[in-house]
Amino acid sequence: MNRQSTRPSRNDRKTHDRLCDAAERLRDSVNRLSFDEPITHIYNPLDYAWDLHQCYIRQVSSQAEVLLLGMNPGPWGMAQTGVPFGEVAAVRDWMGIEGEVGSVEHEHPKRPIEGLACPRSEVSGRRLWGLMQEQFESPEAFFQKHFVLNYCPLVFMESSGRNRTPDKLPAEERDALQECCDEHLRDVLSLLPWKHLVGVGAFAENCLKRVAGDNASSAQISRILHPSPASPAANRDWAGTALAQLQSTGVW
Rank of each mutant, 00 (worst) to 15 (best):
E114H: 15
I42T: 07
Q80R: 11
W50A: 09
R32W: 02
C118G: 08
E24D: 13
L116E: 06
S159Q: 12
A216G: 12
F85Q: 00
P75M: 02
T241W: 07
D93E: 12
D36S: 15
C118P: 02
K145E: 10
Q135L: 13
S218P: 03
L185R: 05
F136C: 09
R126K: 13
A242W: 04
V200P: 00
L192R: 13
P170G: 13
L67R: 02
D36Q: 13
E179F: 12
V30L: 04
V211H: 01
T40N: 09
P232H: 06
H108I: 07
L149T: 05
Q63D: 14
I57G: 06
R120Q: 14
S228V: 01
P112L: 12
A212E: 03
E183F: 12
P73F: 02
K195L: 09
E205F: 05
T249N: 14
A141C: 05
L68C: 08
A176C: 10
F156E: 01
S218C: 15
M1F: 11
P193D: 10
R3A: 04
F143C: 04
R111W: 14
R186I: 07
Y48K: 11
C207R: 15
G199H: 06
W94N: 03
E105D: 14
S121N: 14
A171R: 14
L185G: 02
N11K: 15
D214V: 12
D21T: 06
F143E: 00
P119D: 10
N163E: 13
G213S: 11
F142V: 01
Y56K: 02
C55V: 00
H106K: 14
K209P: 00
H41S: 09
Q59F: 06
S9T: 15
L33H: 07
D12L: 01
E37T: 11
F142K: 03
G250Q: 13
R7K: 13
R162S: 11
L169E: 07
L192K: 02
F136Y: 15
I221R: 06
N215Q: 14
C180L: 06
G240Y: 11
M132Y: 03
S228M: 02
S103N: 12
W238N: 03
R162P: 00
H53S: 11
E179W: 11
A244Y: 11
F35K: 02
P119L: 09
L185M: 08
G125N: 01
R210T: 09
P153F: 04
N206P: 00
V155A: 03
Q245L: 05
Q144E: 14
A79V: 05
L46T: 06
R13K: 15
R236F: 06
E122G: 08
Y43H: 13
V88G: 04
S160C: 08
F85R: 03
Q63A: 14
P84A: 11
C152H: 08
Q135A: 12
H53L: 01
K195A: 10
A244D: 15
R58Q: 10
P153A: 07
G125Y: 01
L116C: 09
I113M: 09
L128Y: 02
P75W: 08
Q247G: 07
L116H: 02
G201N: 02
E105I: 13
E65G: 10
R236C: 03
P45G: 00
G130P: 06
Q80I: 08
P112K: 14
C207F: 04
